[in-house]
Nucleic acid binder design. Structure first.
Length: 424
RNA sequence: GGAGGGGUCGCAUAGUGGUCUAGUGCGCCCGCCUGCUAAGCGGGUUCCGGGGUAACUCGGUCGAGGGUUCAAAUCCCUCCCCCUCCGCCA
């Protein structure tokens, strides 16, 4: 969230960015509540100060009658404090709730526009492959190489589930290993994380209350399934003060992700592009505010290195104000071309969230050689999302008979050069 | 899941209703003293919020949240976490 102080001092900017995001947020109500809060706070704190002083005096008073007079007086003060406190609590509860609804401010570089049609194409890298035959979509290739089984996934778990077996299961694992190793080599610390988090953790990361409809949760206990590893990474340092000299901290981890995609039944139904459960390799950075712009560039470069090494054509988009995520001030998406289904697949989203999540999750750090504490900036980027990268490899490396070449970088992980066609 | 023990300032500990403005030791920071170092001496050392240009000041903060009281680290209730043992188990 944005700090109250920031909203107070930059109200116009905050309101303008909310409009640019094509959304709404109760900024005026927050400003009003803030003023009410401070007015009451001054009264109630003055009364508390009085009670503290007098109560201490009562302890030191020997005269019983004198004590009794003061106790009665303080009883009245106590009643008044309670009355004011009740009002204050109500205001603070509403204030907190409303603060949770305000999205991050926008970086000035963010293109303006109401929805995804205004996203800006930054760069296209690699030539789109030309095939001397009609390239097949991955669900057909999956049948030919005999590793994709959508029906049995649906049988055990319903629609939007599938199973992989044999070389395709192995291809996914190879990609995960490959990406973890690549990012690890670049200095990112590998992390293994919980896949279920408490409700408080989901609030801290900004998933709740807004995205409740997209989350799976345990029926009886306080556990939510992570929709992305980002949620866990944010909570790594929740309610902590990071000692001086530790930033930047760069992490990478692989987790499954669980999302309730309650979208219209007709969209993205073919194949495995969008499921309720998928794998993802995620990068996450904690850094000092002065570093976050450079760290975002570095994260995008990290993410891009994967399709580049794999020889997959991709493009980079700068998300516009209407499409950018709630927590983010600036986001780049990476999309890989899938020639079989003739579509760009989003495989990464790299975002600078500034100190937005740090405020929400109560994360501070000690700057070296300086007094006090500051809020770190936090960034995240997929590196990359999995079944989609599997799709991209399958569709870009397919051959006429439906067999699939294994990109050179993956061959050591796969132990094979070609995924053979077993059904013609 | 059962039984017991425990959560206090960076660390270790003291504190069972008012003398706690949470003490002491260690660590750390500043200063004094000092050929150097060590020791010694003096001062400082949580975080959040309010007021103030500032010096400063007020409130809150002893795992979390409620309650009792003029007054709570201390008493009561609920919850969380950690440790030991038993059960179960990948």
């Amino acid at each position: 969230m944005l700090s109250l102080q920031f909203i107070r001092e930059n109200a116009d900017r905050v309101k303008r960015d909310v409009l640019l995001r094509n959304t709404t947020a109760p900024v005026d109500r927050i400003l009003q509540l803030d003023e009410e809060r401070r007015a009451i706070l001054q009264q109630v704190e003055a009364l508390r100060a009085k009670r503290n002083t007098v109560s201490k005096a009562i302890g030191a008073t020997k005269d019983a009658a004198d004590r009794e007079v003061r106790i009665v007086e303080m009883r009245l003060v106590g009643d008044e404090i309670e009355r004011l406190d009740t009002g204050l609590n109500k205001i603070e509860a509403e204030l907190k709730e409303k603060l949770y609804e305000v999205p991050n401010i926008l970086d000035p570089d963010v293109p303006k526009g109401p929805d995804e049609t205004s996203n800006q194409l930054v760069e296209v890298v690699g030539d789109l492959p030309r095939f001397p035959f009609a390239p097949r979509p991955h669900w057909e290739l999956g049948e030919i190489v005999g590793g994709l089984d959508i029906e049995r996934g649906a049988k055990m778990s319903g629609s939007r589930f599938y199973t992989l077996r044999g070389p395709l299961a192995k291809l996914q694992r190879a990609l995960i290993q490959f990406m973890l190793n690549e990012h690890g080599r670049a200095g990112f610390t590998e992390a293994y994380l919980p896949y279920m988090l408490t409700e408080a953790s989901l609030y801290a990361a900004g998933q709740l209350p807004k995205f409740r409809d997209n989350l799976y949760r345990d029926f009886e206990e306080d556990y939510y399934f992570i929709p992305t590893a980002e949620v866990a990474f944010v909570n790594l340092y929740r309610d902590e003060i990071i000692p001086a000299g530790q930033l930047p901290m760069r992490f990478v981890g692989h987790t499954p992700c669980f999302r309730r995609e309650k979208m219209s039944a007709g969209r993205d139904v073919r194949g495995i592009k969008r499921g309720h459960q998928f794998e993802k390799v995620e990068m996450f950075v904690y850094c000092e505010p002065e570093q976050s712009e450079a760290e975002l560039e570095a994260l995008v470069a990290r993410a891009r290195s994967i399709p580049e090494i794999l020889g997959l054509p991709y493009r980079v988009l700068a998300l516009c104000s209407g499409d950018i995520g709630f927590n983010s001030t600036k986001t780049f998406d990476l999309e890989i071309w899938a020639p079989g289904q003739g579509e760009w697949l989003e495989v990464s989203s790299a975002s600078n969230c500034l100190d937005f999540q740090a405020w929400r999750a109560n994360i501070r750090y000690r700057p070296g050689g300086e007094q006090g504490v500051r809020h770190p900036h936090m960034l995240n980027a997929s590196g990359l999302a999995l079944p989609r990268t599997v799709i991209a490899v399958m569709e870009n490396y397919q051959r006429e008979d439906g067999s699939i070449e294994v990109p050179e970088a993956l061959q050591p992980y796969m132990g094979m050069n070609v995924i053979p066609a077993v059904m013609a």
